[in-house]
């Protein structure tokens, strides 16, 4: 009632049309303030990094980290240097990150299908699933020594692939193949778990209907399950790609030197802008942003499906 009476007042109506604050309570206002602060808290480091990457050496010293460089302190030079240094590594990284991501997602999907739908005995499925979930919790650090031994003593991939090196490809690239296999093996557990959760929500009756329609297990996967897995593939591809792209530990162990022609981007980035004279902050920032571009691209590309998959 009082609201209605207020609106008959002329000045009140004008105020309403400009700032519709009638319904805003103290709680609402507080909520928006907190949200704005939280957003600033998360965005400041990124903003600082971005502006820093465009600063000259003197601008870094003279301006606050989050302040823009100003006309005199602005330069593209550091981006230029970072791009030149990292481009080679980008190619190498894509060479193992893309195959490893796709292969681990596919294997995870097929394994999850096997664990969810067919009429296996539940106790067998539980055992396999327990093993797979255990795999998720093995820390990278714990396998570094066995991993090195595996590739250096048990499976000498370099010898097995000698015909490839005969074609004129540098034999350091064996590291890329080893990284693909290692990341696929490490990615299968989490991929399987994610897909299994998704497949659990698929209608049993639909699967049974497909079986009654005459489709074999393999055909049901190919024609029903796989086409319906889109959203979960987006989640798994983004997650796996980011993991593999950003991983430094395995590349350190398997490829080890940044001077190698097969050095991935993370390895080069680790040494970029560090020298005896000190840290080149602008170069390090430019390098970090440049190296993060592919993961950003993947997020943007699969964003819609990602949201759908996370909701499911």
């Amino acid at each position: 009632m009082s609201d209605g009476e207020l609106r008959t007042d002329g000045s009140g109506a004008t105020a309403n049309s400009r700032w519709n604050l009638d319904g805003v309570t103290v709680e609402d206002a507080a909520l928006y303030v907190v949200l704005a602060l939280a957003a600033a808290f998360y965005l400041v480091p990124i903003e600082s990094g971005l502006v820093t990457s465009f600063k000259t050496g003197t601008a870094i010293v003279e301006t606050a980290p989050f302040a823009p460089p100003g006309a005199s302190g602005f330069t593209f030079e550091k981006w230029q240097t970072a791009t030149d240094a990292l481009l080679r590594g980008m190619g190498n990284s894509l060479l193992y990150a893309v195959p490893a991501t796709i292969i681990s997602a596919l294997i995870g999907s097929i394994t999850a299908y096997g664990l969810t739908i067919p009429n296996w005995k539940a106790s067998y499925k539980a055992l396999v699933l327990a093993l797979i979930i255990a795999g998720i919790f093995i820390p990278y650090q714990a396998v570094l020594v066995p991993l090195t031994q595996f590739w250096s003593q048990w499976v000498q991939l370099s010898d097995l692939l000698s015909f490839v090196w005969a074609l004129g490809i540098d034999d350091d690239y064996v590291g890329i193949v080893e990284l693909v296999v290692t990341h696929v093996a490490y990615g299968i557990p989490i991929c399987t778990l994610l897909f299994r959760t998704y497949y659990k929500t698929m209608s049993d009756e639909m699967m049974e209907s497909a079986r009654l329609d005459g489709a074999s297990l393999r055909r049901v996967y190919r024609r029903i399950v796989l086409p319906l897995s889109g959203p979960m593939f987006a989640v798994v591809l983004i997650y796996q790609f980011t993991q593999i792209w950003n991983d430094l530990l395995f590349t350190l162990v398997i490829v080890s030197t940044e001077s190698s022609p097969a050095a991935p981007v993370v390895l080069i980035l680790a040494g970029l802008g560090t020298s005896m004279e000190g840290q080149d902050f602008a170069l390090r920032m430019a390098g970090a942003f440049f190296a993060a571009l592919p993961t950003l691209a993947v997020y943007i590309l699969f964003g819609d499906e990602f949201a759908e998959g996370v909701a499911a």
């Binding site: 209608s203 009756e205 639909m206 209907s209 009654l212 329609d213 005459g214 086409p227 319906l228």
Partner: peptide, 26 residues
């Protein structure tokens, strides 16, 4: 052939594809 309570249609296929599926597979 079985008709389910939930209909169990294949959501990613058109009506025509839904109906063709059984003939294609069997």
């Amino acid at each position: 052939a079985m008709v389910f309570q939930s209909y169990a249609l294949y959501p990613h296929m058109s009506v025509k594809q839904n109906m063709s599926f059984g003939l294609e597979e069997s």
